[in-house]
Design a protein around this nucleic acid. Sequence first.
DNA 1: CGTAGACCCTGCGCGC
DNA 2: TGCGCGCAGGGTCTAC
Length: 276
Amino acid sequence: MPELPEVEVLRRSLEPRLLGRRIERVQVLSPALREPLDRRALGRLAGRRVTRLRRRAKYLLIDVEGDSTLIIHLGMSGRLTVVPHAAPVERHEHVAFHLAGRGGKGRLRLVDPRRFGLAFALPTGRLATDRHFAHLGIEPLGDELTSRYFKQAARGRRGPIKSFLMDAKIVVGVGNIYASEAMWQARVHPRRSVARVSMATWQRLRDAVRGVLGQAIEQGGTTLNDFTDGEGNAGYFQVSLAAYGREGEPCARCGRSLRRLVQGGRSTYYCPGCQR
DNA sequence: CGTAGACCCTGCGCGC
DNA sequence: TGCGCGCAGGGTCTAC
């Protein structure tokens, strides 16, 4: 479900609703996620106030007092929302953080039908070396992402540009939707080998990745099915998608019919006319 | 070492 | 109406 823009939109929407509020109680309703929920570790968050919300790659990081961090990953189908204290438990609600403080009682809940998501707690200082984060590449919206970085990272690699863009060891946050969008924007064919990308094209790809992710954040993310921010609002970047999910529709740039192909078991959408 | 494919799981829309 | 199939925004592990 969520790529970097959706997690960032979620972070921004939750920030005013969580900052300074206290987690009164942690309720694990259904521990079966990608990694089983650890009742004891999550329970230790109880009694602490939220001090900061951050994002790394597609992970949401909720820092609390006492140098602990709650880490949430939404997988494909996760939804994290603040609901009224008395809201009925939803199907596939895995964990609920009962909140007190400004705004009265409430609950932050993680609902995840497909169970590819994660929720765990760590001492804040241990994040960088934790196995979930240790091997992640650079953030795409920071200063480090340059055409030179891309070129350097591609040295000695084979394989298609799409896999490269989606490889979190290179650059994080680019998932299946925004990979198609960035390649369309940069006019690069998804099967193009990374060994055959010129510096000018690396520059176009770099600009396209940043541009697409940035615009998607501004527009509240992409809601294809069920993405919402922390208040339950859908995004509207889906109306701006140029390629993803548009097989058979005319390319907005050249008019050719957009096509779908499968790479690594996942759909890629592209224009056979203007992507080379 | 890098890369390709299988796999984890539920739900939805489609064609029959 | 019911059923089977393909597909879905993530990441990790195994086999080459």
